[in-house]
Simulated scan of single mutants.
Amino acid sequence: MTRESNPAEAVQKIALQDVTPNRRRGGDIRVLLSPKTVGSSTGFMGILTLAPGEYVSEHYHPYSEEFLYAVRGTVEARVEDKKLAVGAGEGIMIPKGLRHRVTNTGVDTAVLVFHLCPLAPRPELGHVDTEALPHPDAVGPEVGGR
């Protein structure tokens, strides 16, 4: 029986500790489930960890909506000129094309789950930076999910 005839064969598990962090845009960004890691075709999902005071630099996604869910801690999500406090157990959806930045405003490490969909036509089109990166020379996989 092939994967095509048995879709359950395509199910894969990815462990957070097995994913290399991307720190270029700030914090610890790890894409777990993506076209590159599991062959997804519609979007990607990962974990963002921010120490107190850390942030993910401002950017936007021309093709994707971004969903953020706070598992632990408190962050401020600035979407365009609107600021939203997002605490553990809360989530937000950022419509495609809107500039956004996420900052840990709390005293504890913040952990968020993110999901973006649909995918951009090519990875390099999925993310547009609108401010200087905090760690432009950091080595790690590109966040774009592929």
Rank of each mutant, 00 (worst) to 15 (best):
A15G: 09
P62G: 04
G87I: 08
A132T: 07
V86M: 15
R146W: 14
G26V: 09
V111W: 02
I92F: 15
H127T: 07
Y60T: 07
K96H: 11
I92Q: 11
E142M: 15
R146M: 02
K96W: 00
P62W: 06
H135A: 07
L84M: 11
P121N: 08
R146Q: 03
G91I: 13
Y63P: 02
V75G: 04
L98Y: 15
E90V: 05
R23V: 14
A88N: 05
E58H: 02
K96D: 08
V38R: 01
G97V: 05
K96L: 12
T20F: 02
R146H: 11
E76C: 02
Q17H: 15
L16C: 09
L125Q: 13
R122S: 04
R146I: 03
E76M: 11
G144S: 13
P136N: 12
V71K: 09
H100D: 04
F44L: 05
G126E: 03
I94P: 03
H100Q: 11
V75R: 04
E131T: 00
H115D: 04
A51K: 12
L112F: 02
I92Y: 15
D137A: 09
M93S: 14
A70H: 02
L119R: 01
T37N: 07
P21E: 10
A110I: 05
S57H: 02
C117M: 05
T42Y: 06
P21D: 11
G91Q: 12
P123K: 09
P62C: 08
R23M: 14
M93P: 06
G144Q: 03
H61L: 06
G97C: 09
G106P: 07
A132C: 06
R30Y: 09
F114N: 05
G97D: 05
D108L: 02
T20D: 11
A132M: 03
P136E: 12
G87Y: 03
I92A: 14
T49V: 11
V102Q: 13
E90D: 12
F67T: 13
A15H: 14
R99Y: 14
V113W: 00
I92N: 13
G87V: 10
I29S: 14
L50N: 01
V31I: 00
L68A: 06
V111R: 04
K36V: 02
V79Y: 14
